[in-house]
């Protein structure tokens, strides 16, 4: 027993040096050398200021911007410091109320009241930081944004397409629109 204890302590020290120190340092070294941008958070810098990360969503409520999905982080939505989903169960009345509230807000802001709204736009994401919308959810907001900016719908649609990614390698994941880069491009084109 005593021998096993001593060997355990020594073994744990060796393993800590290899796995807890050398391993993360090695991966950091390789990562920073080969993929510095990704390793540091895929940050978007504009005029010397960090304006966001291409991987992390931001909250939008201006009709001139495309709106992101709902976010359940607290105290404010898209709080990067405290990722969280809503964790509302499927039969929770609070979930139904929340979805109804989002549907109402989108319709009042100029969405088509006759059409059902793509489900991703009215539900909270798992991380609360989802940077993407489905192409259908972007299309639903297109008329509102075009009107608010006095843009033609077709030129706006072309811009949305530029910020739409298909399935990776043609079959993995789902097609998606990056809301932050799209809105930044909109602001740059028509301030």
């Amino acid at each position: 027993m005593l021998q096993a204890t001593l060997q355990s302590v020594r073994m744990l020290v060796v393993m800590t040096v290899i796995l807890g120190v050398a391993y993360p340092l090695l991966v950091t070294g390789i990562g920073q050398a080969l993929f510095a941008d990704q390793a540091n958070g895929s940050l978007i810098v504009e005029g010397g200021k960090v304006r966001g990360s291409a991987l992390i969503g931001q909250p939008f409520s201006d009709p001139k911007h495309f709106w992101s999905r709902a976010s359940a982080t607290s105290p404010m939505p898209y709080n990067g410091g405290s990722s969280s989903g809503s964790n509302q169960g499927p039969t929770n009345p609070a979930l139904k109320e929340a979805v109804e509230g989002r549907v109402k807000a989108l319709r009042e802001a100029g969405g088509d009241a006759a059409k059902p709204i793509p489900v991703d736009l009215v539900t909270a994401s798992g991380s609360g930081l989802d940077p993407h919308l489905s192409p259908a959810a972007a299309e639903y907001q297109l008329a509102r944004v075009a009107k608010a900016r006095g843009m033609g719908e077709d030129s706006l649609r072309a811009l949305v397409a530029k910020h739409t990614e298909g399935r990776q390698f043609g079959f993995l994941g789902e097609p998606r629109v990056n809301v932050l880069t799209l809105n930044m491009a909109l602001d740059a084109a028509r301030p």
Binding site: P90, D120, T123, S127, D130, H132, S134, E174, R176
Partner: peptide, 10 residues
């Protein structure tokens, strides 16, 4: 059912 799910994973 997209509640609690990410768009990129669907």
């Amino acid at each position: 059912n997209m509640e609690g799910k990410e768009v990129r994973f669907g």
